[in-house]
Structure formats: C-alpha cells, structure tokens
Amino acid sequence: MSEGPINLNKARKARAKALKRRQADENAVAFGRPKAQKRKEQAEAERARRDLDGHKRET
C-alpha cells in the first residue's frame, strides 16, 4: 500500500523536471560535440554517400 496521500502538484512538477532533464541530455548528445568531431562525421557521411553513388549502375 502507499505511504499516504500524494501531493499531485509535486508529482506533476517532478514529471516535468524529469522530462526537461531527458530533453537536455538528448540535446547534449546532439549538439555538445566539438567542431572537429562534427566536421569529421560530416566528411565520413559525405564519403559514404559518394561511395554509394559510385556503385550505382547506369541505365
């Protein structure tokens, strides 16, 4: 059984805080990279795209 009554206002605020923390963690992963790393990943993606285009057959 539960310990007692639940303060719904605190529960709502805790849920909103957890949601904001999760969003901040996702943003840190997406945008918290050094410029050199972003350029390297962009160059790798471009190289992969060119390699894939190079393997296409001409019709």
Results as ranks from 00 to 15, higher is better:
M1H: 06
M1L: 12
M1I: 14
M1S: 09
M1K: 05
S2E: 05
S2Q: 03
E3P: 00
E3R: 00
E3N: 00
G4T: 01
P5D: 04
P5K: 04
I6C: 00
I6A: 00
I6S: 01
I6N: 00
I6Y: 00
N7M: 02
L8A: 07
L8D: 04
L8R: 05
N9G: 02
N9Y: 02
K10M: 00
K10R: 00
A11R: 09
R12Y: 07
K13T: 05
A14T: 06
A14Q: 05
A14E: 07
R15E: 13
R15M: 13
A16L: 09
A16I: 06
A16K: 07
A16W: 00
A16D: 07
K17Q: 11
K17Y: 05
A18T: 14
A18N: 12
A18G: 11
A18Y: 06
L19F: 07
L19R: 13
L19H: 10
R21T: 14
R21P: 01
R21D: 13
R22W: 08
R22S: 13
Q23R: 12
Q23Y: 03
Q23W: 02
A24M: 11
A24N: 10
D25S: 13
E26I: 15
E26C: 08
E26S: 11
E26G: 03
E26W: 07
N27P: 00
N27W: 04
A28Q: 03
A28N: 05
A28S: 06
V29Y: 04
A30K: 11
A30T: 03
G32N: 02
R33S: 06
R33D: 02
R33F: 03
P34I: 11
P34W: 02
K35L: 12
K35M: 06
K35H: 03
K35C: 03
K35A: 10
A36R: 04
A36C: 04
Q37G: 01
Q37L: 15
Q37F: 05
Q37D: 07
Q37K: 12
K38M: 10
K38I: 09
R39K: 07
R39M: 10
R39S: 04
K40Y: 05
K40S: 08
K40T: 08
E41K: 07
E41Y: 02
E41G: 01
E41A: 12
E41R: 09
Q42A: 15
Q42D: 09
Q42S: 13
A43V: 02
A43W: 03
A43T: 05
A43R: 07
E44Q: 14
E44D: 12
A45F: 09
A45M: 12
E46P: 01
E46L: 15
R47I: 13
R47V: 11
R47H: 12
R47D: 10
R47T: 13
A48Y: 04
R49S: 09
R49F: 10
R50Y: 06
R50I: 13
R50E: 12
D51Q: 15
D51T: 14
L52D: 03
L52A: 15
D53E: 15
D53V: 13
D53L: 15
G54K: 15
G54Y: 08
G54I: 15
G54E: 14
H55V: 13
H55E: 11
K56S: 08
K56C: 09
R57I: 14
R57H: 08
R57M: 11
R57Y: 04
E58N: 06
E58V: 13
E58K: 07
E58T: 10
E58M: 08
T59L: 10
